[in-house]
Design a protein around this nucleic acid. Structure first.
Length: 170
DNA sequence: GCCAACGTTGGC
DNA sequence: GCCAACGTTGGC
């Protein structure tokens, strides 16, 4: 099982939106970057844990946890002419863009802000804080995940207790 | 709203 | 294959 960080702009899709979604699950559509796509297509597995990150907002922060609950499948928005994610160069025979479904796992008692991540020496290697890094989906190391969980005011025990429950439900 | 740092596109 | 032009990301 692996850990990921996924960015979302709260004014288009927030962690609250995920929590309130049907099944508390959403297809992670609209990714149009090959590196990010490849993570979803090749490296993500059902049961992987996601740090849900709010970007492009007053206080950028990791605000909670999600879980990958599907294999990768073609992003339907690429075929929809009315979607802003429409890609005329893609075809149903040979889809270019893929996505996974993400399910709500749990809230953070305290959001872990970008500035607090930057201040934590243990997290200095996180892609998030590297200059010029704009990837919307990033791999996260085990110890980085554990550190962020601590900063959020949670324990790993609590996380995995909830994790087991949600995993059984998918 | 600004703007630096990227990624993509397309002419050549 | 090069690279200028353009569009996007995302912190501030």
């Amino acid at each position: 099982m692996k850990y990921w960080l996924m960015k979302s702009e709260p004014n288009s899709f927030s962690f609250e939106d995920l929590k309130n979604a049907v099944n508390q699950t959403t297809p992670w559509d609209g990714v149009r970057n090959y590196q990010a796509r490849n993570f979803m297509k090749n490296d993500m597995e059902i049961g992987d844990i996601v740090l849900f990150y709010h970007s492009n907002c007053p206080t950028p922060a990791v605000v909670g946890l999600g879980m990958i609950v599907s294999e990768a499948y073609p992003d339907f928005t690429q075929f929809d002419e009315k979607s802003k994610y429409y890609d005329p160069k893609s075809s149903k025979d040979k889809p270019r863009w893929f996505l996974v479904d993400v399910k709500y796992l749990m809230d953070f008692p305290k959001p872990v802000t970008l500035s607090s991540i930057k201040e934590n020496d243990k997290l200095s290697e996180m892609l998030l804080v590297k200059k010029g890094m704009r990837l919307s989906i990033q791999p996260v190391q085990d110890f980085e995940f554990e550190e962020i969980v601590m900063m959020a005011g949670l324990s790993l025990d609590k996380v995995f207790e909830e994790y087991d429950k949600v995993k059984k439900s998918i």
